[in-house]
Amino acid sequence: MSLQTARSMPVARSRKRISRAARLTSSGLAYAVLIALSFLAIAPIVWMLMSSLKGYSEFKLNPWLWPREWQWGNYTRVWKNADFGLYFTNSLIMVTGSVSLMVIVGSMAGYALARYQFKGRESLLYYFIAGQIVPGQVVLVPLFILIRFLGMLNTRHGLMLVYLAAAMPFVVFMMQGFFRSIPKELEEAARIDGASELRIFWQIMLPLVRPGIGTLAIFQGMWIWNEFLFALLFANKPELRTLPIGIFSVIGQYFTDYPVYFAGLSVATLPVVVLYVLSSKYLVRGGLAGAVKG
């Protein structure tokens, strides 16, 4: 055995050299791809920030260069003229309200699907999975008619309900996966300890899927923060406008003050970026938790 290794040494060494070269080129390639991708991701944001600080004519004359004169006034203008404070508040209310609803309804439904045996359980699960396949735009018209019929058009709770319905397939499916990954014995131990069903759910199961819920909440929250179509259709009253709609309203029919528009976009993007950076570690961890089915 040892003799053989000694004899094959030179071969092994040359192979090693080759593999090191290969490794270098392959990691160089990986870096090149990653840098290109980061550039693609960051460039538009930088461009947006840059443009938001130019005057209108400068923006038209040199859209690609650094601002010659920094127009901080764009920001004050967008805040005052476009009623940004209101849009901000509206968006915040929509996000917290919808996400809370999603978490409450989704966790309960997910728990039932993961843990209780009842008739039609399988079909119900498939129903939710099927729901993920249908894009929201397809059901836009029926949804609109339904919400109008319910008298919830141009109300906050109407829009929240639409968001809830749209997110439910994904949220329920993920939730039941999280719950399924928790060992059954925990629940049984609690049952022997004397816990009621509600208490098991509330005090044992829910705390254990918290990382998963956090991830879901952040993703869904970002989606709602940026959502345009539903918001435009179901809450199109000036006092209900969310950020994306509000910013859009800056765009005029004949004239658009693009730098101001970009200032608005920058303000709207900022919270998302901050949230993402703060929670990125957590997102990766939570995204993996519950990924393995129990």
Binding site: P183, E185, L186, E188, A189, R191, I192, I204, P207
Partner: peptide, 20 residues
């Protein structure tokens, strides 16, 4: 009779301690 009313306690193979 429900488990909690049987006046028993159980030690599981996996221990099933509440992690949180």
């Amino acid at each position: 009779v429900a488990p909690k009313d049987r006046d028993i306690a159980m030690v599981f193979q996996s221990y099933a301690l509440y992690p949180h």
